[in-house]
Every structure is written in structure tokens, then in C-alpha cells.
Nucleic acid binder design. Sequence first.
DNA 1: ACGACTATACTTAGATA
DNA 2: GTATCTAAGTATAGTCG
Lengths: 224, 224
Amino acid sequence: MDTMLKKTQGRKKIEIKRIENTSNKQVTFSKRRAGLFKKAGELSVLCGAHMAVIVFSSANKVFCYGHPDIHAVIESYQNGLSSVVGADDKAQEVLIAEYNKLCEEKHKEEEELKKKMAEAKAEASEKKTMMEMGMTGVQVLNEGFWWDEPVDLVRLEERERQKYMMALETLRNKVADRAHHKKIMSGTVAGTSLPPVHRLHMMAPDNCFGTDFGDQFGNHGFGV
Amino acid sequence: MDTMLKKTQGRKKIEIKRIENTSNKQVTFSKRRAGLFKKAGELSVLCGAHMAVIVFSSANKVFCYGHPDIHAVIESYQNGLSSVVGADDKAQEVLIAEYNKLCEEKHKEEEELKKKMAEAKAEASEKKTMMEMGMTGVQVLNEGFWWDEPVDLVRLEERERQKYMMALETLRNKVADRAHHKKIMSGTVAGTSLPPVHRLHMMAPDNCFGTDFGDQFGNHGFGV
DNA sequence: ACGACTATACTTAGATA
DNA sequence: GTATCTAAGTATAGTCG
């Protein structure tokens, strides 16, 4: 037997927890994202499953995959969520009541958040930063953060106000996520200012276009 | 050397193409879907990535995963709004600090919920759950709970769908009395037998790999 | 249909260029 | 940032209960 050293240690087992090292996290993100999309592609091809996968990196780059069409899949999903009417089950009534209660809480939180933002803005210096949040063509006009701008909600058009609240919601989730990991403001995303969206480049399985749509609505699908 | 026969042939290489055999396809779908969600959960935890995964089986059962919240992620995607949390702005720090405070309670609830579910599952079996990986937005988990059942949105009547989704929404935030609801809800869902409704309008399958809002951003790479 | 098994195919962490 | 490489860790196809 030889005494040759192994070239690498090979793969090591890791714990599934937040990776703190930034560059290591980046590499892992790239590798695993690729792996995830590959798996997604294989699943959709093998089983004819329609699907949508959206991934935001911690720097908010967006990567996505969809089969046969990501927007159609999302729309289907949302249609399912937004359907309306009806009541006859007691347990469901209870759940709905609870849901409404939670919505109220949420609304209150948002009100409070807005108040806090207003205060924060008042304290902050008069930075001039503007952001346009158009539905089809989001642009950040300069390097500042949009929420620095003293936004006068009263003067915003209704549409703009909705977009503003939307962005606020996004911020809430980002913050929530960071709180969840208890590593708030680790400083890993300093300076990024654009809301980028990525085009996904990946291998296209051969039968990508061979999906049998007649099968999608029939009764002979999975009975799971 | 012995002549002992191998117990199994082990894993075989397969081609990535549509599986024609229905039952085989079903099994593969279940296994690979589980694998996909696991990978998704690992990615979101390891890298703090926000993400949404929606999968329709060929019978239009929907399974989804989101972190930290599937709806917020989808909305962010659709609006092209991916606000970046910077690390050096005063107003922002104030805002985040305040919001963290507001969110703290809910996150604790979530953690407890996860713990509760893990315990509940441990009672039934030793099987690990994906909840342990911080999959806060998981809607499809393991067997044993009514919300494990994939929702056949296509077959549910409008009003039933509404109620179901609201109930599910409630559960995502606050699950109580799981056993009681399990019985009721699984009966409701499983017992529904309505004529198929074709709500999904799929586009031409030439856009196998979904993308983004356009290339106007022109970003690339992880981009810190 | 559902799990458990297990040999094998595939993925990937760490190192390196 | 990207692209290998390698060994080891994982996922899973086929099979059986």
C-alpha cells in the first residue's frame, strides 16, 4: 500500500443551519440552487408535474424555474387561494374567525410599523432618494434606500400606495427572517441597491416539450 | 468468493423522461417531491434564502413550500420588488429594531408550534419531519394530519376552496387542536366528489423554464 | 396502496487553480 | 466570481413484506 495522501478530504457532513461565513454561503447557495433546479426539472419531466420555484438569494437576486410556465403555475396557485364564498362547517367557521383575528393583529402591526417609520424618517437627515415601483419595470433611481425617503402616503396615488405597502411587506419578511435566525444585521448585504431578477440557465431535459396536457385534467392522475 | 445473491439490484440509472407507467410515476413523484422539499428547506436554512415552491401533481394536487412566507415571496417575485436590507442606515436600524420587537412573539409561537408538531409526530413514529429544518411555510408535511392531504383545488367547489384555504392560512400561523380538526377537515376534503372544474389554463409548453420580468436589470452572479 | 431495505447513482463540502 | 476534482454523504430505483 502506498502512503499517498488523499487529494481532498472529500465531502464533509454539515449541520443544516445558517452558514455564517459569507463566501462559503455564496458557494453553497450556488451549488445547492443548481441542484434544486435540477431536481425540479427532473421531477417535472419524469412525472409531468407542473411547478414553480422562486428563490431569492440573501442579496435578493431572484432565480426561478417553472414548468410548463412559471406564471401560469403561480396563477393557478393563486386562483386556488382566492376563490370565494360559503359557510356551513362549524370547525371551519372557528378557523375563519381566528384567521380574521390574526388579520386584525397584522393590520395593527402594520399601522404601528408605519408610525415607527414616520418617526424614523423624521429623525433621519434629509436624504433625497427616490424609487419608482412600477409593476413592469422596477427601477431604483440611485444608491439610497427607498425607505429613507419621507414618503407622503397621503399624496401618493392609490396604486402607488399599494405598491408601497407591498414593499413594506417585503421588508417585514426580510426582517422577520433575520430575526428568526437571530443574526440581525450581520452586514453581509451592505450596499446592494437594485432589485435584480435573474434568468435561469440550466439544462433542458429532452422531453421538456413533450408534456401531455390532456392528462392534466383527467381522472387518471395520481390518487394520492 | 461466495455465490450469495444480492438482495436487491440497488438503484438503477434512469433516463429523465416522462414515466409512462402510472403507479411507478406516482411512487417516483412522492419520493422526489419529498426530496425536492427537503432540498428546498436545507437551502433556505443554510443560506437564508427566501423561496417559494409550488408543485402540482399530474392530478392537480398542489403541494407547496415557502420560506419565510410563500405568499410574500410570490408577491415579491411578481412585483419585482426585492428590497434589500442594508446594514448601515440609521433610520433602517430603528425600523428593524422596532419590527423585530413586534415579530418576536410570533416567532416564538412558530418555534413552539414546530416543537409541538415534532413531539406529536414523535408520538406516532420516530420519523423525522421537515419542520425541524425551519420550514416555516410548509403546507405539506408528513402523513398523519389533515393538512398533509394535498388539496385538490380543481375539484373543490369555490366556497369549499375558500374556506379550506382560510383554514390552512390560519394553521400556518397558529395551529391548535390538531386532532380535532384533522378529523373534520380530512372528512371534508376527502369526501368531496364534484365534477372536475377546469380552472387551470396552461400556456403553450414552449416556455419550459420560466424566467423573470425581463433583462432590464442585467444582473448576474450572487452579487453581494 | 405504503414502508423498509439496500445497492447504486448522484450530490456536494472542501480544497485547489 | 468560476470551475474543476475527489471522497464521502445522500437520494432513490427496484424489490419485498
